[in-house]
């Protein structure tokens, strides 16, 4: 397959993926906007003033980057896992599998779709946040790179989950029992400085802590972790998950009998 044909196939998957989540915007874009608004009202406006400052910022300002990142993580993952599993379930993934598309193009197309939804939802939640607090961007480069790379990590995660999933329960197990706890314990609502030393150490094994804090650094200029460690960990995850996903595609795990 020539270079132009590969680009056409890649763009086709992207158009299909973006069209899908835009067509069902009531299920994909609206719900995170509503739930994150509730987070801002409850934690920011009602409970926040009683907590006072955190990390040198008003509580609302402190949690805003975490809430934005939480929505990006959830939606990147959800987009790819539901789209790819849906394609397997309805068997229209066969349209791609019988076509001469290299595996990395299929993977890149789905990951791009997940990143696109993550960024669109992230933007919507950011707009919501601006109704509640002022967001001063400390580093645009860090904000854009961290949010995009994090979105890639969870899109890849969603893809791998979908490859292994055999039913709809398998699609929801990882988000419910792994992703949500790690996100809540990843410093979205608190600084790990508040934790006892032992739990601070445990928290440092949570990769989402690095993503949330790196993003918070990009906006507020403060973080609980070293920003370079965050980039290194994210890039490591991207490399590992990409390799793993390509091996799965190559072997046809969960796709070919």
């Amino acid at each position: 397959m020539g270079y132009h044909r590969i680009i056409t196939a890649f763009l086709t998957i992207i158009i299909k993926e973006v069209t899908r989540f835009v067509r069902i915007w009531g299920q994909t874009i609206l719900p995170p906007a509503v739930s994150m608004t509730l987070y801002f009202i409850i934690f920011g406006s009602l409970i926040g003033p009683k907590i006072g400052q955190m990390g040198g910022f008003a509580y609302m300002e402190f949690i805003a980057p975490g809430i934005i990142m939480m929505s990006v993580i959830n939606n990147s993952y959800a987009n790819v896992v539901s789209s790819f599993f849906g394609a397997k379930f309805q068997r229209h993934i066969e349209e791609m599998l019988i076509a001469p598309i290299p595996d990395f193009v299929i993977l890149a197309g789905y990951v791009f779709g997940g990143v696109a939804r993550g960024l669109v939802v992230g933007l919507v939640v950011t707009i919501v946040a601006l109704f509640f607090t002022h967001l001063h961007i400390h580093s645009y480069a860090v904000v854009i790179s961290i949010i995009t790379l994090t979105s890639m990590v969870f899109s890849l995660g969603g893809f791998i989950n979908a490859v292994y999933a055999r039913n709809f329960d398998d699609v929801s197990i990882i988000p419910t029992f792994v992703l949500t706890p790690l996100t809540y314990l990843g410093g979205v609502f608190y600084s790990i400085d508040m934790l006892p030393e032992f739990w601070q150490g445990v928290s440092r094994f949570n990769p989402i802590l690095y993503m949330v804090n790196a993003f918070r650094y990009g906006i507020l200029g403060v973080a609980d972790i070293n920003i370079f460690h965050a980039f290194a960990i994210i890039l490591l995850f991207i490399s590992g998950l990409t390799t793993f996903a390509l091996v799965l595609l190559r072997r046809g795990i969960g796709l070919k009998s």
Binding site: M1, R5, I6, T8, A9, I15, H92, E95, P100, I101
Partner: peptide, 18 residues
């Protein structure tokens, strides 16, 4: 896909073949 139009389905398939 049960959610796509007939035209979308065939255009996408053509796209997969470049």
């Amino acid at each position: 896909s049960q959610w796509e139009s007939c035209l979308e389905i065939v255009l996408n398939q053509a796209g997969y073949y470049g």
